[in-house]
Design a protein around this nucleic acid. Structure first.
Lengths: 161, 161
DNA sequence: CGTACATCCTCCAGTGGCTATAGGAGCAAG
DNA sequence: CTTGCTCCTATAGCCACTGGAGGATGTACG
């Protein structure tokens, strides 16, 4: 019995949801495992570890393509780790930038909320500041992170924060 | 001559790209303007102001649906601004949470980068920490923001940061 | 008046990283 | 043998846009 671990167990053990595991296989991030006679995926312990690696990387905000590179590096332990270091450093400066942006954002939102007289909309600081950009202080907040080609196409996305 | 402002001018003046303006019209965020004989959109100054409002709101990370509500409020100046205040406060606590998450993330990335011996992958702290989740410190980092229905479906999205 | 060129139009497909649903098959326990 | 759980594939949807094809319109200049 149990030649291979079922996808549900792998999901539980790795913390990656079942459809996400199948998705990772589809995009070539995870090797297709052998199947049982009935056609079900039969994984091994190593797959759980790989998925944990992927999950942790995603939690740290690395993109799928970067994770692909990191996995390749992991599979060649005799290589230089300069690339891995570079990826991590790039991510670190992204994170620093985002913290800076969000901190400026926080200041402005606080200004809005504190200035709200809790009366009617006509005197509301929240609406006021939104309507008149000149009343705000973060004019240069939104330069997209330098050196990212992938995010360029989504200039104003809320999710950028 | 110039009965109405062309979409290109509006785009320039508001800072919202042309296709995005058409998209906003499509999803009902912006009223369809009258057209010229040739079928081109003819805007007024008020549209530029509305688009500036939208852009600024997006920059502050508000979602389209929230902006819809904010616009409705703006159009009824005699109403209470409690709703606007609520939206801004909700956004503020999201931002605070994200700053906290990112700060934890930054700490872990710094630990990875500092620990890197700049040698081979087999001794690389970066790969090491990614592979073994127990070696990291942010286990409880990623509870999705409470009270957001819209973001629930993207649990691990990198863009969340 | 003709022509070159900028700007506009609609429609549709693609982005990232999944998530959800439909419609079915496999499999162990009672 | 039936109940109920897990699994399978395939497809569509999410957000907030962005980009391109292929064509129409408007304007500046000769």
């Amino acid at each position: 019995m149990s030649r291979g671990i079922a996808i549900g167990r792998v999901s539980e053990a790795s913390g990656v949801k079942v459809p996400t595991i199948r998705y990772y296989e589809q995009i070539g991030l995870l090797l297709p495992p052998p199947r049982t006679e009935g056609g079900r995926r039969a994984y091994e312990q190593a797959d759980i570890e790989r998925l944990s690696f992927i999950r942790h990387s995603r939690e740290l905000g690395f993109e799928i393509d970067q994770i692909r590179t990191l996995i390749q590096l992991q599979d060649r332990p005799e290589q230089s780790c300069a690339d891995a270091d570079g990826i991590a450093k790039a991510r670190l400066s992204e994170v620093k930038e985002k913290i800076a942006s969000l901190t400026a954002l926080k200041a402005e939102l606080e200004r809005m909320v504190e200035g709200c007289s809790h009366g009617r909309v006509e005197n509301c600081k929240v609406i006021d500041i939104l309507a008149d950009h000149s009343k705000c202080r973060h004019h240069q907040l939104h330069a997209p992170p330098q050196g990212t080609k992938k995010l360029d196409h989504g200039a104003l996305r809320a999710s950028w924060y």
